[in-house]
């Protein structure tokens, strides 16, 4: 299991690096699809079919929106130029990355190894949840009964984003 997911993650990293360095914006957007659809396969392997269904549809819609925006504007990537400032930025970035990586290595020492997770807080969400909520699908039970506030907040965020897009695109700009 760990090996399979590592291989898929390797492909996702290669796709991500290509997406950031592509000369053509359309191929960059398509290369982002490698990362998204690889994530779908990982979700299926990790026994999360709900997430796989949502992710595959959302990824497709995101790709449609991004391709529409890129085709509507320009496909050319801006040429990257090197000067003294960019070298200083690179060195700073490398130091920050190394520090982040060091603290991450420290942090995952406290995590359980993959596959031996012990249920702590969510034990009561699994044991006897069917009698409490009546829902056979435990994820739906958590979403709409135990943690319904999260779902309400999520729906409000989506509503706000739709209103924000309407405000941004339908108003008349300053000439």
């Amino acid at each position: 299991m760990e090996l399979t997911i590592s291989i898929i993650l390797g492909f996702m990293i290669i796709g991500a690096i290509y997406a950031l360095h592509a000369k053509d914006l359309l191929s960059a957007v398509v290369a982002m699809g490698i990362v998204g659809y690889g994530l779908v396969i990982c979700f299926l392997l990790l026994k999360a079919p709900d997430l796989a269904i949502v992710q595959i549809v959302v990824e497709t819609i995101t790709l449609v929106i991004m391709v529409a925006v890129v085709l509507d504007s320009t496909r050319d990537e801006i040429a990257v130029t090197f000067d003294r400032r960019s070298i200083i930025n690179m060195v700073t970035g490398l130091i920050v990355f190394a520090a982040l990586f060091y603290f991450f290595i420290l942090a995952i020492g406290n995590l359980d190894p993959l596959g031996s997770h012990t249920l702590r807080m969510s034990e009561s969400y699994v044991n006897g949840a069917v009698e409490k909520t009546g829902s056979v699908n435990l994820v739906t039970g958590v979403l709409f009964d135990f943690r319904a506030y999260d779902t309400l907040g999520e729906a409000v965020i989506l509503y706000t984003a739709a209103l924000g897009v309407l405000t941004l695109l339908r108003m008349k700009g300053k000439k």
Partner: peptide
């Protein structure tokens, strides 16, 4: 499951309408 299917239905309508609004605005 009580009200859970009702929540599902209306959240589904909300998500569909929100995504469609964004796309139509573009």
């Amino acid at each position: 499951a009580g009200v859970i299917p009702l929540y599902n239905i209306f959240i589904g309508i909300e998500v569909a309408a929100a995504i469609l609004t964004i796309f139509l605005a573009l």
